[in-house]
Deep mutational scan, measured.
Amino acid sequence: MIIKINGKYYKIKKIEKNPNGKYTITTENGKKYEFKNVKIFSEEELK
Rank of each mutant, 00 (worst) to 15 (best):
M1Y: 10
M1W: 14
M1Q: 08
M1L: 15
M1F: 13
I2A: 08
I2P: 01
I2W: 15
I2H: 14
I3R: 00
I3F: 05
I3H: 01
I3V: 12
I3S: 00
I3A: 09
K4V: 15
K4C: 12
K4E: 13
K4A: 12
K4D: 07
K4Y: 08
K4P: 03
K4N: 10
I5S: 02
I5C: 05
I5R: 02
I5M: 09
I5A: 06
N6G: 13
N6Q: 11
N6W: 13
N6P: 00
G7A: 03
G7L: 03
G7Y: 02
G7I: 02
K8F: 11
K8T: 11
K8A: 08
K8D: 06
K8W: 08
K8H: 13
Y9G: 03
Y9Q: 04
Y9V: 09
Y9K: 04
Y9E: 05
Y10H: 11
Y10V: 13
Y10G: 01
Y10K: 03
Y10Q: 08
Y10S: 03
K11Q: 05
K11L: 08
K11S: 06
K11C: 06
K11P: 07
K11R: 11
K11N: 06
K11V: 10
K11M: 06
I12R: 00
I12C: 04
I12P: 02
I12E: 00
I12M: 02
I12V: 14
I12F: 03
I12T: 02
I12K: 00
K13T: 10
K13S: 13
K13N: 09
K13M: 12
K13C: 05
K14L: 13
K14R: 13
K14V: 09
K14F: 09
K14H: 12
K14G: 11
I15S: 01
I15N: 00
I15F: 07
I15E: 00
I15C: 12
I15Q: 01
I15P: 00
I15W: 06
I15G: 00
E16Y: 07
E16W: 10
E16V: 11
E16A: 06
E16T: 11
E16P: 00
K17L: 14
K17A: 09
K17E: 07
K17Y: 10
K17C: 15
K17G: 04
K17F: 09
K17S: 07
N18F: 08
N18A: 09
N18P: 01
N18K: 11
N18M: 14
N18L: 14
N18C: 09
P19R: 10
P19C: 08
P19I: 13
P19G: 09
P19D: 12
P19M: 12
P19L: 11
N20D: 11
N20W: 04
G21R: 02
G21N: 04
G21Y: 01
G21C: 04
G21A: 01
G21D: 04
G21L: 02
K22T: 14
K22F: 12
K22E: 11
K22S: 11
Y23R: 00
Y23N: 01
Y23G: 00
Y23L: 09
Y23Q: 02
Y23P: 00
Y23I: 06
T24A: 07
T24V: 14
T24H: 04
T24Q: 09
I25W: 01
I25Y: 03
I25R: 00
I25K: 00
I25N: 00
I25D: 00
I25H: 00
T26R: 01
T26D: 01
T26N: 02
T27L: 15
T27P: 00
T27G: 05
T27K: 01
T27A: 09
E28W: 15
E28N: 11
E28R: 07
E28M: 14
E28F: 14
E28S: 14
E28D: 08
E28G: 07
E28I: 13
N29D: 15
N29H: 10
N29W: 08
N29M: 08
N29F: 09
N29R: 06
N29I: 05
G30T: 00
G30E: 04
G30R: 01
G30P: 00
G30C: 04
G30D: 09
G30W: 01
G30H: 02
G30K: 01
K31I: 10
K31W: 11
K31Y: 12
K31R: 11
K31L: 10
K31E: 12
K32G: 02
K32R: 13
K32I: 13
K32Q: 15
K32C: 08
Y33R: 02
Y33Q: 01
Y33S: 01
Y33K: 02
Y33E: 01
Y33D: 00
Y33L: 07
Y33H: 07
E34G: 02
E34A: 05
E34P: 03
F35R: 11
F35L: 15
F35Y: 10
F35I: 15
F35G: 03
F35A: 14
F35S: 07
F35W: 05
K36S: 12
K36H: 12
K36I: 10
K36C: 14
K36L: 13
K36Q: 11
N37G: 05
N37L: 08
N37P: 04
N37Q: 10
N37V: 11
N37E: 14
N37T: 13
N37A: 08
N37D: 15
V38K: 04
V38T: 03
V38M: 05
V38H: 06
V38D: 07
K39P: 13
K39D: 15
K39A: 13
K39Q: 15
K39S: 11
K39F: 10
K39H: 15
K39I: 15
I40Q: 05
I40F: 09
I40Y: 10
I40D: 06
I40N: 06
I40E: 10
I40K: 04
F41C: 13
F41Q: 06
F41Y: 15
F41A: 07
F41G: 05
F41I: 08
F41H: 03
S42F: 13
S42P: 06
S42K: 06
S42I: 11
S42D: 11
E43H: 03
E43G: 02
E43L: 03
E43R: 01
E43P: 05
E44M: 03
E44Q: 04
E44W: 01
E44C: 05
E44F: 02
E44V: 03
E45H: 02
E45Q: 05
E45A: 06
E45P: 04
E45W: 03
E45C: 12
E45S: 06
E45I: 03
E45F: 03
E45N: 04
L46K: 03
L46D: 08
L46A: 05
L46E: 07
L46F: 14
L46P: 06
L46G: 07
L46M: 10
K47S: 15
K47C: 13
K47R: 06
K47N: 15
K47E: 14
K47H: 14
K47A: 14
K47V: 15
